[in-house]
Design a protein around this nucleic acid. Sequence first.
DNA 1: GCTATTGTGTTCGTG
DNA 2: ACACAATAGC
Length: 726
Amino acid sequence: MLADSILEGLNPEQREAVTSTEGPLLVLAGAGSGKTRVLVHRIAWLVGVCGIPPEGILAVTFTNKAAGEMRERVEKLLGPEAEALWCSTFHSACVRILRREAGHLGLSRGFAIYDDDDSRQAIKEALRRKELDPKTHDPRRLRWRIDQFKNQGILPAGASEQATDMDAELTAELYASYQRILAENEALDFGDLLLQTTVLFQQHPEVLAHYRRRWQYVLVDEYQDTNRVQYNLVTQLVEEHQNLCSVGDPDQSIYAWRNADIRNILDFERDFPKAKVVRLERNYRSTQPILSGAVAVVSNNVERLEKALYTEREEGERIRVYHARDDRDEAQFAVRQIIDEVRKRGRPYRDFAIFYRTNAQSRPFEEEFLKYDVPYTVVGGVRFYARAEVKDALAYLRAALNPADSVAVRRIVNNPPRGIGKATVERAASAADAGGVSLLEGLRIVAGEGGRAGSKIAAFLKVVDGLARELPELSPADAIACVLDRSGYLRHLEQQGTTEAEGRLENLRELLAGADDFARANAALGDDERSPLELFLEEVALVADIDQHDTRADRVSMMTVHSAKGLEYPIVFLVGLEEGIFPHAASARDERGVEEERRLCYVGMTRAMERLTISCAEERRRFGSRSYQVPSRFLSEIPEELVEGELPGGPKPAGGGDYDIDYSYAQEAAGGSSTLGPGLRVRHPIFGEGSVMQVAGSGQGQKLRIRFDRVGIKTVLVRFANLEVV
DNA sequence: GCTATTGTGTTCGTG
DNA sequence: ACACAATAGC
């Protein structure tokens, strides 16, 4: 009975993937072939038919969002029983394990999780200690190189061993020093979460044995994007029972740059000789022209497993190609199409998505959406939890909960300004170093020495100590409110009274609301020994941009092609198909790079269900200046008969096509400017109204300094700003 | 120690 | 074109 209902609506291949429960299984799942469905039904099958307890199953996905959706769908099939299932990202699974087993690694159970920015600060500290100049040793680059080591499972000792020149030797040394600083701060970075878990399993076979016994069945989604450490983790767990189900698509491997290793999926049958392989080749998402076009592009890859994708949606319009004059025209074209379609056919905005190669490309689209009052959301860019004011507030929480976290302490010690300058902080840092204690303790030492600086520090310590006493008892939202009050942070912002400060206050209110939501949503599972506040900090550290994306809201979505993986939309605009952008210049140097870009293009195209529009611009603004663009080689790889519009080499469209776009106000300000001078009221299409403060230069390079009513002071280039005199 | 100014790099993608 | 960091001047 139950077995039938679980298999209902599945095709024969999907059924095979669901019911082949014992031993290693590789599911090669083409785009849109229902792989999430297979994973969900397989879990339901394991629990409902095979009688495996839900806590005996580990399912790992790429994003929190995918994990949440999978859990939801499993619950629909199984009911609340599914709650005991471990369904999460690699990172959150590892955090849970590490918190539990922290003692084995000599790690504090309350360790902090450092994001890119925090780890860069820790790298800077490592440079300071070695008296190296951050100018000659770029902290960002160092962080990147260390992260690469971690993704490959290489510890500092290994990095040192394989170093063949001075530079590599120094990097290895800094890696070691950076790890010491993290340990002192009781912190782990993203890479550590995975790497330290494999170290834990290696050094403590009894711990590994425990988890092996616990998880009799392991499922891994997006297997083509796993890196060496993730691979090690998985093989460690399944070595005995071999009940591993890996699902993936080599054509969608797009993370080689962060050490995802496509060989993990290609060598599956070698790694697991008894492996069964199931191919899902029937596509349920896209129309024939879209699917054929995407397959045609990716077929140009030499290193590729051939597979035969087919769709039953044979009807469907051809792929549209639009050659825009410039980036602005490209944006205008897409936005006008969307408005048209919404007005004429009554489509909801949520049916549309715009995908680009780089985050910086979102700008012109945002401008057009704002101009025409079209609701939209941008995924990515600056993460909400990475905004300065949000990170400041969180740093107070972190410092109060974990006084060893020197990166957090350094961030808040003079923020808001309380007269504790760089010299004082450095004094405290060396005192801390000398005594082998944390920065906060170093500050205590300096405070004890008295003097002007001493009393200022004492005031700061009083704030932090007070928070350390009060916060652990509070809910996340109350704790944040408390921090903002006691620290004087809120008062400081309110006193500024600028529009910029107003925006920051708005973000802080949003943070409070988010904390409140979190507490409410997690009130049910309060069985953890960790406080709601600690759980909130962890959540915040591990959310990805895409996790916060609300697909239910009626808005147009904009995101990078990378973020788009796993999503689908009826109407997709894939924009900026130009050499240097897509394929990106940095990847186009070697053939492997180009092949990954091509897979990325395949991912972008296969997101579209009904209509796919691809565009490129002849000219675009990059780094503030003009650049002439060449259409992407990927465009000419789409067979002509699948395309409507012109492929490269075809006739260029006349002007902006059949859309009458009003440029008049732009010309007005760019041309005549006899009245241009301080005091003049102008309107900017984005920033709104403002007063000119200062005029600099003339002709093409003329710049204006303007105080905008809404957004404060900005400098704009007259030629590009499209100003209108009010 | 604080603020305003200048200078620099940024934009390849993420948990 | 903008954000961020370093620096100069107070």
